[in-house]
Write a protein that binds this DNA or RNA. Structure first.
Length: 735
DNA sequence: CGTAGCGATGTTTTT
DNA sequence: CATCGCTACG
């Protein structure tokens, strides 16, 4: 016990040992938030204030949930299996499996990931003969998800024009389709659970009485629905007769809210404080990660945001090194410098995986990768396809899904002709029409098809039936192996020239099933609180696992490598050395973000997250020109650079002439492409030229057009935006 | 049914 | 520049 609380600082200790009341912990980056969260749970249990089953701890990522469970097992001699610790979606899945009847779902309902959802929507539009030019599936998907994330159903949606009215109708159709097919999307997991609990009083009371302590991680990332869900479970929703609710312990950092574009509402933190009458607000401001200069830079930057809850990170580790700022002539020049610098660090003994290259958008990794590859530095890029998202894996899973739930049309269509069995678009159209007419799943409608097509589809149905029979009593990994063989998937990829890796992945899927069984699915634990609830089958659990946890972003070859990722992906991680590249107006902050309200503040928070990833050394760089969409863009340094205390920065552009001897490193002024129009512009005004304008400030000429009195130039003024100016009127001073 | 070629498109993305 | 997704052929 005393161990448990040892080495906590006063604020951490205070947070961990708070009385059972609502609390808001404002935990800065690197302030030990996960530690506080887990220690709080361990402390509550070990002091006998509650049993393990009385806690509900919720996070956003599987990684965070696993981490919490692992730390908890290390702290307490208890079996954490069966505890309600997991992601929002994982916990909702669990609840819906246990009460699927009350929730109006089949026992083996399947979960659609984003890709599945998109194809379901495309299929819907096709069936309804909706022009997908007018209603782009992606846009419709966002529309639907954004509404559901607010806790809304089609009937409650606000309709302001015909277009939206139609979108809402399509949304309602989509919901009908999902219900018929027995599938739920991510947002549905939450919304369905929320509705189940609000409608079903006994059930609600049961859970409200059961959970005495609710702990939430990354609270700043909750959306409206998640917050409503928490209020309901905590008995704080105003429903009549709610038992005395749980104590909610919310941990978050408003300065690290970077998912507003996905519906996260930082405002939930303020609302929580107000609505729950939170008396205990504790700030964890001591940072154990970074040196002082890095924190000072982060603090100075984030001060420019309005309406913060307020927080200032500090450390007793000393100021450390200055922040190194580099300006490259081009993106390539920038990449070269970064990679050279990284190589130097590696030579000095810094471990490769303690070096991170962070950037705003994925496209930026290209140049860096190229450079790393050329110089032979091992690296690993995060992002891109994840294990369970690979096509061969999704195909195999689709067969498994059909075994579990034949009504799943998404799965049916995915593999009915994969590997090919002579079922063409024509036959499928007929089949879908038949299914539509009889309002039945494709699987059942197949019997009504006649002729050659009917025979082919019939054979497919028989295959599935046989697979179901053959795998009935097999352990899960063997089921997976069996369907890979019998479906013809293995055969198919054997014959494909690029198939080797896919075959390896399929084998990996068998392994994944085996370790899934070994770890969690071996013996589903009946929940003591609801012993009568049906236990999910291993297959259903595995499929849910596959949808909810898409797996690693890249198969790790285990080699020590430099880490490349977007700033978003870096949240929650830390490295000895961090390079943030592409600090240019329009890129970071991103131009598309300045359009949205408070978009700039979110970009600043993103920058804050990036800076606070660094432990010892931080580099920031930008380039004067950058290839974007195949064109050279002239860039203005990011405004965020100006917001940093200049005395913390070390401008490392010592080389006034580029050390590199080839054409890439020339100054843009010398290298600026000569366009046909360029000669038309008055002397001194050409592409790449820095200019100053009375109203818009400093900028760079990006393009010129016209001649004489019609001459216009396009200028990137950075914060003030991109402008076309007529030279006849606008006073531009060359700098 | 597979693929070559063409045109549109180009932020971030825990689940 | 480069990738993706769809169309038009073989």
């Amino acid at each position: 016990m005393s161990d448990l609380l040892a080495n906590l600082n006063p604020e951490q200790l205070q947070a961990v040992t708070l009385p059972p009341q609502h609390a808001l912990i404002l935990a800065g980056a690197g302030s030990g938030k996960t530690r506080v969260l887990t220690t709080r749970i361990a402390w509550l249990i070990s002091t006998g204030q509650m049993g393990p089953h009385a806690v509900l701890a919720v996070t956003f990522t599987n990684k965070a949930a696993k981490e919490m469970l692992a730390r908890l097992s290390a702290m307490l001699p208890i079996n954490t299996r069966g505890m309600w610790i997991g992601t929002f979606h994982g916990l909702c899945n669990r609840l819906l499996r246990a009460h699927h009847k009350e929730a109006g779902l089949p026992s083996l309902f399947q979960i659609l990931d984003s890709a599945d959802q998109l194809s379901a929507i495309k299929r819907l539009l096709k069936n309804l003969n909706v022009d997908d030019e007018k209603f782009p599936p992606r846009e419709l998907m966002h529309f639907i998800n954004a509404h559901k994330d607010q806790g809304l159903r089609p009937a409650q949606a606000e309709v302001w024009d015909d277009y939206t009215r139609r979108r809402v109708e399509l949304w309602a159709e989509y919901e009908g389709q999902c219900q018929r097919e027995g599938v739920v999307d991510f947002a549905e997991l939450l919304l369905r659970t929320y509705e189940l609990l609000s409608r079903n009083e006994p059930l609600r009371r049961h859970y409200q009485e059961r959970f005495r302590h609710i702990l939430v991680d990354e609270f700043q990332d909750t959306n409206r629905l998640q917050y409503a869900w928490l209020k309901l479970l905590a008995g704080h929703d105003g429903t009549a007769g709610a038992p005395q609710g749980a104590a909610v312990f919310a941990v978050g950092d408003d300065d690290q809210s970077i998912y507003a574009f996905r519906g996260a509402e930082v405002g939930n933190m303020r609302d929580f404080e107000r609505e729950f009458g939170v008396q205990n607000v504790i700030r964890l401001e001591q940072n154990y990660r970074s040196h002082g200069n890095i924190l000072d830079a982060a603090n100075a930057l984030i001060k420019n945001n309005q309406g913060r809850l307020g927080k200032n990170l500090w450390t007793d580790q000393g100021a450390g090194e200055p922040i190194r700022v580099f300006e490259g002539f081009s993106d390539l020049d920038e990449a070269r410098w970064i990679v050279d610098e990284a190589r130097e660090l590696i030579r000095e003994g810094v471990s490769r995986d303690q070096i991170a290259f962070l950037y705003r958008s994925n496209a930026q990794s290209r140049v860096l990768e190229h450079e790393l590859f050329t110089k032979g530095v091992a690296y690993k890029v995060y992002g891109g396809l994840r294990f369970f998202e690979r096509q061969e894996i999704k195909h195999a899973l689709a067969y498994l899904r059909l075994l579990a739930n034949p009504d799943d049309d998404t799965a049916f269509l995915r593999v009915v002709n994969f590997p090919t069995r002579g079922i063409g678009a024509r036959s499928l159209e007929n089949l879908q029409e038949a299914a539509h007419r009889s309002n039945s799943p494709l699987y059942n409608a197949a019997a009504s098809l006649t002729g050659k097509a009917g025979a082919a589809v019939g054979a497919f149905i028989r295959l599935i039936e046989e697979l179901r029979r053959e795998t009935e009593n097999l352990p899960l990994p063997e089921v997976v192996e069996h369907i890979i063989e019998r479906s013809g998937l293995r055969q198919h990829y054997l014959g494909e020239k690029e198939g080797q890796e896919r075959l390896e992945n399929l084998d990996e899927l068998i392994n994944a099933a085996a370790s899934f069984i070994a770890e969690e699915g071996a013996m589903p634990v009946p929940d003591p609180a609801t012993p009568d609830a049906p236990l999910p089958s291993p297959l259903a659990s595995f499929l849910a696992h596959a949808s909810l946890e898409a797996g690693d972003h890249q198969a790790g070859d285990g080699q020590e490598a430099v880490q490349l990722m977007t700033v978003h992906a870096a949240k929650g991680l830390e490295f000895d050395v961090v390079f943030i590249s592409g600090l240019e107006q329009g890129l970071f902050p991103h131009e598309n973000s300045v359009m949205e309200k408070s978009g700039e503040e979110e970009e600043r928070r993103l920058m804050y997250v990036a800076i606070t990833r660094a432990r010892q050394r931080l580099y920031m760089s930008h380039a004067q020109t950058r290839m974007l969409h195949g064109q050279t863009r002239y860039c203005v340094p990011s405004a965020f650079l100006d917001e940093l205390p200049q005395e913390l920065l070390l401008r490392v552009n010592a080389r006034s002439t580029p050390a590199y001897d080839n054409s890439y490193s020339r100054s843009p002024r010398a290298a600026a492409p000569v366009t046909a129009y360029e000669s038309a512009a008055p002397a001194g005004l050409r592409v790449g030229q820095n200019v100053s304008h009375a109203k818009f400030g400093q900028g760079v000429i990006v393009a010129t057009e016209g001649r004489g009195a019609d001459a216009r130039v396009q200028v990137n003024f950075g914060a003030a935006g991109m402008k076309w100016l007529a030279l006849e009127f606008a006073k531009l001073t060359p700098l």
